[in-house]
Amino acid sequence: MSKKILEVENLRINVLDGTPLVKGVSFRVCKGRVLGIIGESGSGKTMTCKAIMQLLSKKNFDISGKIEFKNRNMLDMKEKEINKIIGKDISMIMQNPMTAFNPMFKIGNQIIETLMTHSNITKKDAYDIGVKELEKMNLDRAHEIMNSYPYSLSGGMLQRIMIAISLMLTPSVIIADEATTALDVKTQSLILSEFERIRDNDIGLIVVSHDFGVIARIADDVIVMKDGEIIENGTVYDIFDNTKDDYTKELLSARLLRKEVS
């Protein structure tokens, strides 16, 4: 068993009026392994991710349980400590890359700003790191990208830049929430290859999706969520080949079976 980085134990999220959104979810994320979370919209998968990212305000939600990162429960930490971890050690790639960038600033400026807030480097160094990381992400003409505005780039391009930015901060965990849903198959395939590279860099990856195709391609371990609960968990082979659960079977049957490609 590889080393665990993040452990979620009995996580419960309620809206303050008592409506439960997530009802006791536990899982662990390990170095160099990909955890796939699958479920339909409304299953609580996005809420779980937001809770890990500490994006849920205590004013609106009641969160209990444990989110343990490097053997410390993040739910007990002070805001200052959390801010040091979120965005740097744990980062998230969202579904819609268009809204993740500020449309008023050039990509380069946003990369430099992110780098400089999290580490003590000069602007020049930040720029160089930015270019290098973009190149690693198989983006040609990195200098040109640094100088362009978000609107002039395609969704797939922005998503890859988003991944590059998360990687620049050398995180231990990356959460990808439906990161490929809005993209066409070709770009999706490219992004998934990048995820494979992330995994090989000893980073723990959580891939959230409603599509079993994405899970089949990338995940090592899978949890199936429905109505805020984990219905089934296991390795990807267990889930695909030996599932006992009816709901998982239903999800699996939603794939459009094609005649095999040789």
């Binding site: 395939s189 089949a216 990338i218 094609r258």
Partner: peptide, 10 residues
């Protein structure tokens, strides 16, 4: 580019 149907295809 299509994602695989089964993990063993990946």
């Amino acid at each position: 580019s299509l994602p695989p149907l089964y993990p063993k295809q990946r």
